[in-house]
């Protein structure tokens, strides 16, 4: 019984903690962020398995996690409110070459983050060439270039 409870508790706890951390925390920005995510994975694994390394326990934990995940995705399909709560929504941060600074401030972003995404995805050199920059639900910044 405790395996299922551990898995469910860790799933919920991680969901809440990553919601607190914000969208950018899952975007795998630098090597350090990647290593940090791996460390979180390691800490989670210890809590999930405890001192029970049997196949039964491992499968039970994995089954519980997948069941909750699929259940939530079914819920998200049915209810747009749940989908918004769990996944979030995209937010525009640059509009017609101008930074929306209040939004950047709330999202804890700087202009350099936007320009990095612009250069790597579209080869854009200047802020004025960006029509829209949007921070997506998964934390990645997508860039729509201005048509010439």
């Amino acid at each position: 019984m405790d395996s299922v409870l551990r898995a469910a508790a860790m799933y919920v706890a991680l969901m809440v903690l990553f919601k607190i951390a914000g969208r950018r925390s899952l975007a795998e920005l630098t090597t350090f962020d990647f290593v940090l995510l791996m460390m979180i994975g390691e800490a989670t694994q210890q809590a999930l398995l405890g001192d029970d390394f049997s196949i039964t326990n491992a499968i039970l934990v994995i089954v519980t996690l997948i069941a909750i995940d699929v259940g939530l995705s079914l819920l998200k399909q049915r209810s747009s409110w749940a989908s918004r709560l769990i996944d979030g929504e995209p937010t525009i941060i640059v509009e017609n070459g101008k930074l929306l600074r209040e939004r950047l401030r709330h999202a804890r972003l700087v202009e350099a983050d936007v320009m990095e995404a612009a250069r790597s995805s579209q080869g854009i050199e200047k802020l004025e060439e960006i029509k829209f920059a949007i921070i997506e639900r998964n934390g990645k910044i997508s860039i729509i270039a201005r048509e010439e």
Binding site: E89, P90, T91, E95, E102, R103, F132, I134
Partner: peptide, 12 residues
């Protein structure tokens, strides 16, 4: 800055 936009994404 904090008004909801409708294009290209619908915001709240």
């Amino acid at each position: 800055d904090l008004h909801s936009r409708k294009f290209p994404v619908r915001e709240d």
